[in-house]
Nucleic acid binder design. Sequence first.
DNA 1: ATTGGCCCCTGTTAGC
DNA 2: TGCTAACAGGGGCCAA
Length: 295
Amino acid sequence: MPELPEVETVRRGLEPWIEGATIDKVTLNRPDLRFPFPKDLQSALEGQKIVSVGRRAKYLLIGLSNGKTVLSHLGMTGSYRFAEHGIDKPPRYYEVEPTPKHDHMVWDISHPKHGKSHLIYADPRRFGFVDLYDHVEDSPYLKGLGPEPLGNDFNADEMAEKFTGKKTPIKAALLDQRVVAGLGNIYVAEALHRAHILPTVLAGTLVTAKGKPKPVLEDLAHAVRQVLIEAIEVGGSTLRDFRNAEGGSGYFQHRFAVYDREGEPCPTPLCTGTIQRIVQSGRSTFFCPVCQKKA
DNA sequence: ATTGGCCCCTGTTAGC
DNA sequence: TGCTAACAGGGGCCAA
């Protein structure tokens, strides 16, 4: 679920509370999530200080004082929260049960300013996972990733290179994390709508015969950046079970132009279209057939 | 090498 | 109201 803006919101929510804290104890309530927990997770974490809270694409990267890095992916339904006791400005989440059904990993931490608390990872569907690295840059999960969409390496020229000769629909191409890292089903739909590109056009058609980006690809690069920036500004989106790390909801869902808005009028000024839903690669695509036509 | 389809798992919701 | 089926933000893996 969580796409780049949601993961960034989680990162920003966690950072002030756990950076500088010491991990006193790690509790695993089951042997695995999507994959088994690393065998040495507890021994590698306990006694270490958290020195950084970073993000790459949809991965949280938690740096430790022993040089190791915890890589955490939230899958579709993963979330972090703090137990309500301990921390001096407690982020209230759901009512905290003693042993909630989907609390799979708990870190007992003590922070020099905030005192002791419990950081809890919950994940009903268990599509998330946790891994541990001496050199996280060698992680296979990070190896093939494309550029950060908000970084300097992401632009129309770069996309044009990757799209040349591609027969896959632009929607699927943008979901491919090797093209650009961090987009998911929601923000791809929103970016394509902003750039007025039909999701079904083949990625290769957005490139000229000389391999240069057509103008619309510049619009797309801009739309991707802009929609992510706006979403991060308001704390990401909240659908069903997503909450940010401080227990609040994001607000970006109220600004969706097309996602989950089948049958509603297209919000593009002067456009008379109605939002449609189709299925591409087994996943919903929302778009306006009237104003999304460029290729 | 690409590309599409299936699957992991649980919870929520739409439809009958 | 109650049951069943479809669907959900991701992405690894396999087969064509």
